[in-house]
């Protein structure tokens, strides 16, 4: 196991009280595994991604632990987390277009960044990796503004993986891209894994069909909790959790016309996470809900590598 997350709880501090954005999530990630993290807005997937590398000012580590390569990460303490960042855990951010300092030449920025982490810049290695993502060497002598959006994104992908981290978090990196570029990004990320630049990866997205192309395992979250985690094909073809089932059935299929049959969504909205009621958080929208759902459903491994948190599935 590269990564072990155990009962992780991260809350947002607000004036009205704590928002329980991530409420007791446990999962593991094997060497070489790519985990697709899916769910609708506000389900806690970005919070989980941030919790693994850098909590922002409003976030608070309430409980649970994260173990990476046998070491417990001090995720609640910003300064103590620094030695792990970039080297063990790295991030490709949502905002690749503006992730680089606009007034520094890219090469110089990379060198200064590495020097500040007491790492030597291996120029040959950097050139090879640029070639791999089809960037010319001379981008290093350019300012970020001189690159196109796609080039900036590839540059950031190279920078983030330069120190061969054990875990790479890719947070919604395809949301701003058109479909053909999305495919290229997914292929590049797979290449990074296959060449061993990164050991394992968490790919956060709301796009299940894209996740399916890349991920070995898909984890679906709902309202701060794990709903279902299974190998990608199982989640897409034989989901057990009613939420996953509805999510998959609401995806359009290529070549199918939806003239006579409307594409169904999931009626209702996710619950407020400010003071959530006990019990299954999906039960207000769930077609299968019954009395038992007033109790919290524990995640159960229904078959090998297939975890579902639902009373009906177990």
């Amino acid at each position: 196991m590269t990564l072990e997350v155990d009962d992780l709880r991260v809350y947002y501090r607000t004036l009205k009280g704590d928002v329980q954005a991530l409420d007791g999530v446990s999962f593991g990630l094997r060497d070489g595994e790519i985990l697709g993290l899916a769910g609708e807005s506000g389900c806690g997937k970005t919070t989980l991604g941030k919790a693994l590398i850098r909590l922002d000012g409003r976030m608070k580590h309430v409980g649970g632990s994260v173990t990476l390569d046998g070491q417990v990460l001090p995720i609640g303490e910003d300064a103590k987390m620094n030695p792990y960042r970039f080297k063990q855990v790295s991030l490709i951010p949502q905002y690749s277009m503006s992730a680089m300092n606009p007034t520094r030449k890219i090469g110089r920025m990379v060198r200064e960044l590495l020097e500040s982490r007491r790492e030597k810049l291996d120029l040959d290695e950097l050139h090879q990796r640029l070639e791999l993502v089809e960037l010319p060497k001379d981008v290093l002598g350019k300012y970020p503004i001189e690159l196109s959006g796609g080039m900036k994104q590839r540059m950031v992908m190279v920078i983030s993986t330069l120190l061969n981290p054990s875990l790479l978090i890719a947070d919604e990196i395809t949301s701003a891209l058109d479909v053909s570029t999305q495919k290229a990004v997914v292929t590049t990320l797979k290449g990074f894994r296959d060449r061993g630049f990164v050991k394992s990866m968490i790919f956060i997205t709301h796009d299940i069909s894209l996740t399916n192309q890349l991920a070995d395992t898909i984890m679906v979250m709902y309202a701060g909790k794990l709903a279902e985690k299974a190998p990608a094909s199982t989640v897409v073809n034989a989901p057990k959790h009613p939420y996953t089932q509805l999510l998959i059935s609401s995806l359009p299929e290529v070549g199918v016309r939806y003239a006579d049959k409307r594409l169904t969504g999931i009626p209702g909205n996710p619950p407020s996470l400010l003071k959530p009621e006990p019990g299954c958080r999906f039960r207000a929208r769930c077609p299968l809900a019954f009395e038992k759902c007033a109790e919290d459903p524990p995640p159960v491994e229904v078959e090998k590598d297939h975890v579902v948190a639902c009373w009906k599935a177990a």
């Binding site: 850098r54 951010p93 680089m100 983030s160």
Partner: peptide, 27 residues
């Protein structure tokens, strides 16, 4: 700004981030 957040996420020391921020803020 985004570049400051990215550098923090990659564990860059505050000194370097402040240097960049200062230079850009001077403009």
């Amino acid at each position: 700004s985004d570049y400051a957040n990215y550098m923090s996420a990659l564990g860059a020391p505050q000194k370097l981030i402040r240097r960049y921020a200062f230079r850009n803020a001077v403009l």
